[in-house]
Amino acid sequence: MSSVLRFAVRRAGWAMVVVLASVTLVFTLMYGVGDPCVGKLGANARPEQLQACHVQLGMDRPLSVQLLGYLGITPGPDGVRHGLLQGELGESLVHGDPVTEVVWRRLPRTALLGGLALLFQVVLGVAIGVAAAVYRGKPMDTLLMSFTFLMISIPGFLLGIFALHGPAFLLGWFPVGGYGVGAMDHVRHALLPSMVLGALGAATYARLMRGELVDTLSLDHVRTARAKGLSPTRVLWVHGVRNALIPVVTLIGLDLPLLVSGAIVTEEIFAWPGLGKLALESVVAMDAPIVVGLVVVISVAVQLGNVTADLATAWLDPRARQ
C-alpha cells in the first residue's frame, strides 16, 4: 500500500515539475523574448498605448518576478495574488476573455477529436498489426506494412488537404470542416479530421503490434499452449494480443504530445475550433496568456494521460501488477 502511495506521490511530483518547467520555458519565450503587447492592441494601436500596456501587464518588472506572479507565488502588478496556484490563468490580451474559460470551452472539442483519433488509431492499428502478423511473409503482410509505411512518410497536412478535398468535398461523405451544432453533429464533423489525425498513430501501432505479436507467438509458453491443442484463435488473442498490447499502451501514453502537435495542423486544416487552432491563432497574434495557459493545460493533460497509460499497462501486465 505504502509503495503504491509513494509511487503516486512521486508521479504527481514529477508531473508538477514537468508542468512547471513547460510553463517557465514558454513564459520566457512569450514575455521575455517576444512582446505580447503588440498582439493585444491590434489594428490601429498607438505606441503610447503600448507603453501603457506594458505597465498594465507588469512587463516593466523583471521577468522572474513576472513568472512568480503568473504562478501566483507573488502578487501581480495590482498587489493581489492571482496566478496558477489560485487557479487563474489570466485573460486573453486580444479579447480579454478569461483564459480558463476559453480553454475549458475548447478542451472538450479537442478531447473529442483526440479521443476519436486515439480510438481509431488503436483499433485500426491493432487490427492491421494482427492481420499482418497472422499473414506474415504473405503478400497481405507486405501490402499492409507498405501501406503503414506510406502513412508514416506522408506529411499530415498533405493527408488533411486531400481528405478535405476528396472524401469531404468531392464525394460529400463528410462535412467540409467546421464543428457543427449539437452533440451528434459534433461527432459527425469530427470523423474525418480524427481519421487524418489518427493515421500516423494507426500506422505506428500497426507496425509495433505486428513486431510484438511475431515475437510473442514464437515464445515458449505460447508454443506450448499451441501444442496442448488450444485453438489458434484463442492462442492468438489470449497469449499473443494481450501481451503485445502492453508496449502499445505504453506508447499511447508517450505519444500524447505527438497527438497535440498533430491536432494543431489538423484543426487548422479542418477549421475545427479546438485547442490546436487556438494555439496557432494565439501564437500568431502573440496572445501570450492564452499560449502559456494552453501549455499548462496541455502538459497537465499529457501527464494525466501518461499516468493512465501506466495504470493500464499495470492492469494488462500481471508481472507489473505484483
Binding site: S22, M30, P257, S261, V295, S299
Partner: peptide, 10 residues
C-alpha cells in the same frame, strides 16, 4: 513530454 509543434511554432 513537451508538445513539439506547439513549442516550435511559438
Amino acid at each position: 513530454s513537451l508538445p513539439f509543434l506547439l513549442i516550435a511554432i511559438a
